[in-house]
Design a binder for these strands. Sequence first.
DNA 1: TTATTTATTCTATTAAGTATAACAAATAAA
DNA 2: TTTATTTGTTATACTTAATAGAATAAATAA
Lengths: 119, 119
Amino acid sequence: MLYKVEHIAMSKDYLGELEELILLLIVMLKEEAYGLAIRKALKEQANRNVTIGAVHGTVNRLEKKGLVESMLGGATEERGGRRKRIFTITAMGKKLLQNSQDVKVNIWRQIPELSLDKQ
Amino acid sequence: MLYKVEHIAMSKDYLGELEELILLLIVMLKEEAYGLAIRKALKEQANRNVTIGAVHGTVNRLEKKGLVESMLGGATEERGGRRKRIFTITAMGKKLLQNSQDVKVNIWRQIPELSLDKQ
DNA sequence: TTATTTATTCTATTAAGTATAACAAATAAA
DNA sequence: TTTATTTGTTATACTTAATAGAATAAATAA
């Protein structure tokens, strides 16, 4: 059968699961918020093993949506390797991140303690 | 070019964004956790307008993963309409839900208040 | 120049999220 | 006892997010 397809392009007003985590980690990591460091933090903080490709895919999406900005780090550090691409959260990113957490905390508050106790 | 595709089927140990929200709402709604009520709660609690198809798609996925169970509600209530399919969270669901929130709360705790203040 | 290190980008694919329409089952009304 | 109305779930088609794995790029060191 046929379906009417009416696609109104607009940026979602909420974050994907990995998007939220990575956005949080970018805030946490500050000046050290770049691809590999984010990947490491995901492992340490969330026990998540994501590939570096997945991390970059996500930060690029976040940047496209205007939730983060990026700039290249200095090249004159005494080490080999390419320059880091440092990410920082934007005002819009902050708002969305705060809201995502608020919504969940609010629901948690409406759940009586016993509901989630281990039997 | 060619890529080796080695698919090891295994259930992820974390929740998608909507999965987490709906799982939380199922706990909150208790005996009233069925499709339409979940949809309504998403609107009220998270300001999310998702279609009923999206809700059922998600709860079915959650059940397939063993994170919720469902059973049909009584039919003898004084109202028309089909019987409700009531969802309850499983022990595994609880564990995952608790962990998802713990991870995020932990990162939030490592972020100095000022990092997210409005300028 | 070549090797090593540190990092990002590209390609292909699966999984999650979504809208819309169709269908099903219960009671109420004709 | 059919038809309407209400309340609900299922099916289909599609877009976006998440992912793995390989390739590429740019910096310093040998």
